[in-house]
């Protein structure tokens, strides 16, 4: 980006860092994109991840990391604009389109993504995946929610508690 060079360390705008997934795949990515992760931000500010070193991410496999970085690269420019207060409507619409498409994925990928977003503390991604799960369960009955998210079948005791709760809040089920 053509942002004025300030605050971003002294290595220029396109400083690269290397991230290493749990299965030892190396990903080279712009520091600005990786810094969307609160967890990585300090390390990167301290100059970590450059050269041959790389930052190991023992909790994130390569398939998930590549997906996470796709998000970070797309969102880094807007984030660099301070949450993009001056972004155009077109830019915002494009990011929204990207986000919708981005979470249109298998449940298994989604769950890995949720964990990665949580571990790496990527705020925008956390919010995006949480919204996705919320969309999956909204309007569903408690039983349907359990099935959707892959809960085991309820024990008779759990079933009884569920029924009691549904009776108590009858109006919410009309």
């Amino acid at each position: 980006m053509a942002a004025p060079e300030s605050g971003d360390g002294n290595n220029g705008a396109a400083r690269m860092v290397t991230l290493i997934s749990s299965d030892n795949t190396r990903f080279e990515v712009e520091a600005a994109a990786a810094s969307l992760s609160q967890t990585l931000q300090l390390t990167i500010l301290d100059g970590g991840g450059g050269g041959g070193d790389g930052i190991p991410l023992p909790n994130v496999d390569s398939a998930t990391l590549s997906k996470v970085l796709e998000y970070c690269i797309k969102h880094a420019p807007a984030a660099a604009n301070g949450g993009a207060p001056n972004a155009t409507a077109v830019d915002r619409a494009e990011l929204e389109r990207f986000d919708n498409e981005f979470v249109n994925i298998d449940q298994s990928v989604l769950y890995s993504l949720i964990m990665a977003a949580h571990n790496l503390e990527i705020e925008g991604l956390q919010s995006l995946v949480a919204k996705k799960v919320a969309d999956m369960i909204k309007g569903k009955s408690p039983m349907e929610i359990r099935r959707t998210l892959g809960f085991p079948d309820p024990t008779p005791e759990e079933q009884a508690e569920m029924n009691a709760h549904m009776l108590e809040y009858g109006w919410a089920y009309e």
């Binding site: 956390q126 919010s127 949480a130 919204k131 799960v133 919320a134 969309d135 369960i137 909204k138 309007g139 569903k140 009955s141 408690p142 929610i145 359990r146 809960f151 309820p154 759990e158 508690e161 569920m162 709760h165 549904m166 809040y169 919410a172 089920y173």
Partner: peptide, 21 residues
């Protein structure tokens, strides 16, 4: 909690509350 916050209506939250303890 972050997921539940993003449900659109109180009724959705009530349904979710019945899922388990």
């Amino acid at each position: 909690g972050e997921i539940l916050l993003r449900l659109a209506f109180p009724t959705h939250l009530i349904h979710a509350a019945a899922v388990c303890r």
